[in-house]
C-alpha cells in the first residue's frame, strides 16, 4: 500500500506539488491527470525520491521508502530510454539485474512477455533495429518483468496505436490482479475511465479532483441529457430547466440542464405520448470535467 501524506514541493517561488495526499491499496490503480506542468512528473519523482519533499511523506506499507525498496519498483519514465546498441534480451537482463533479479530468473520469462506485448523481432535483435512502438514495448517489459509491487508509469500510452494501447491496458489490469499498486499519468481520458479505480487531477500542483471515477462524475450532477423523441427543436428548447440544446452526433438532441433535478419532470413530459428510443441523463465525462477544471482560472 502506498500512502502519500501532505506532500509539498517548491522550486523557488514555484509550488510544484501542493499538500498532496492519497492512498493506493494493493491491487488498485490510480490515474493522475492534469495539464502539462501540473506536477505529475514531480509527484512521481518525489515518490521515487529523486527529489526531496519540503513537507509531507511517502509511506510504503507504513514505512518510508528506502534503498531496500528499489527492487519493488517498476518505473516507466515519460521519455523512454534504452541502449540502442545492445540486444533486446541484454537490455532486459541489465535492467532486471539492477532490480536485484538474476539472469536465470529472468531468462524463462522473456518469451512470455515478448509474446504478451506482441513485440516484433527476435530477442537477439538490437534495440535500434526496432520500430518506436516496439522499443516502447521493450521498455514496458523492462519496467514490469521483475514483478514490481509499486508500478509508476509516466504517460505509458503516449505513442501507442489503439491495438498496442489495448495490450498495455490489459497489462495494467493484470498487474492489478496480481496485487500491485499502480499509479500512472495520462492525457487520454478514455484510459482513465476504463481502468482507474481512483483518479486525481492536478492543477498547478494542487489536487482539484480526487476520488473514484463514478463519485467524481456524479459530483458534477447529471446535467447532460441525450434525448431521441418526436419533439421539434423549438419544443425541446422550451422544456423546463434547459440551458442549451444541440444535435448529438449520433442522432437526437443533447441538452444541457441547469440542474439534474429537472430530469424527472422532462422525462414525464417527453414520454407522455408513450415510447421514445433514448432518454439518457448523464454526468459529464471525465474529459469534459478535465476541460472544465483546466479552464477554471479563479482557483
Amino acid at each position: 500500500m502506498l500512502e502519500v501524506k501532505g506532500l509539498t514541493k517548491t522550486f523557488g517561488k514555484l509550488i510544484a506539488v501542493d499538500n498532496m495526499s492519497f492512498t493506493i491499496p494493493d491491487g488498485q490503480i490510480l490515474g493522475l491527470i492534469g495539464q502539462n506542468g501540473a506536477g505529475k512528473t514531480t509527484t512521481f519523482r518525489l515518490i521515487l525520491r529523486f527529489l526531496t519533499e519540503d513537507r509531507g511523506e511517502v509511506l510504503w506499507n507504513g514505512e518510508k521508502l528506502t534503498n531496500e525498496d528499489y527492487n519493488l519498483i517498476g518505473y516507466l519514465p515519460e521519455e523512454r530510454g534504452l541502449y540502442p546498441k545492445i540486444s533486446i534480451e541484454e537490455q532486459i537482463y541489465y535492467f532486471a539485474k539492477l532490480r536485484g533479479k538474476s539472469k536465470q530468473e529472468i531468462k524463462p520469462l522473456i518469451d512470455f512477455w515478448m509474446d504478451k506485448f506482441q513485440v516484433k523481432g527476435k530477442k537477439t535483435d538490437k534495440i535500434k533495429s526496432l520500430s518506436k512502438g516496439n522499443q516502447q514495448k521493450v521498455q514496458l517489459i523492462c519496467t514490469l518483468i521483475h514483478q514490481p509491487k509499486l508500478v509508476i508509469l509516466d504517460e505509458p500510452f503516449s505513442g501507442l496505436d489503439p491495438v498496442n494501447a489495448e495490450l498495455l491496458k490489459q497489462g495494467i489490469i493484470d498487474l492489478k490482479k496480481e496485487g500491485s499498486c499502480v499509479i500512472f499519468s495520462t492525457h487520454r481520458m478514455e484510459h482513465v475511465e476504463e481502468i482507474c479505480d481512483e483518479l486525481i487531477m492536478l492543477k498547478n500542483g494542487e489536487m482539484v479532483l480526487n476520488g473514484t471515477i463514478k463519485a467524481i462524475r456524479e459530483s458534477f450532477g447529471r446535467k447532460k441529457l441525450y434525448l431521441e423523441c418526436p419533439l421539434s427543436l423549438q419544443e425541446v428548447q422550451e422544456l423546463p430547466g434547459v440551458k442549451q440544446v444541440s444535435f448529438a452526433p449520433e442522432g437526437g438532441y443533447l441538452l444541457q440542464l441547469e440542474d439534474e433535478q429537472f430530469g424527472p419532470e422532462i422525462f414525464e413530459m417527453v414520454t407522455k405520448n408513450g415510447y421514445i428510443p433514448t432518454f439518457s441523463q448523464q454526468p459529464p465525462s471525465i474529459e469534459e470535467i478535465f476541460k472544465m477544471k483546466a479552464g477554471d482560472h479563479h482557483e
Binding site: F50, N67, N71, I73, P77, R80, G81, C142
Partner: peptide, 16 residues
C-alpha cells in the same frame, strides 16, 4: 547519453 536518453531515471530508480 544516459542522461539524454532518460535511461538515467530508470537507473536511479533502481540504484543510488
Amino acid at each position: 547519453s544516459e542522461k539524454g536518453t532518460r535511461i538515467m531515471e530508470i537507473i536511479l530508480s533502481s540504484v543510488t
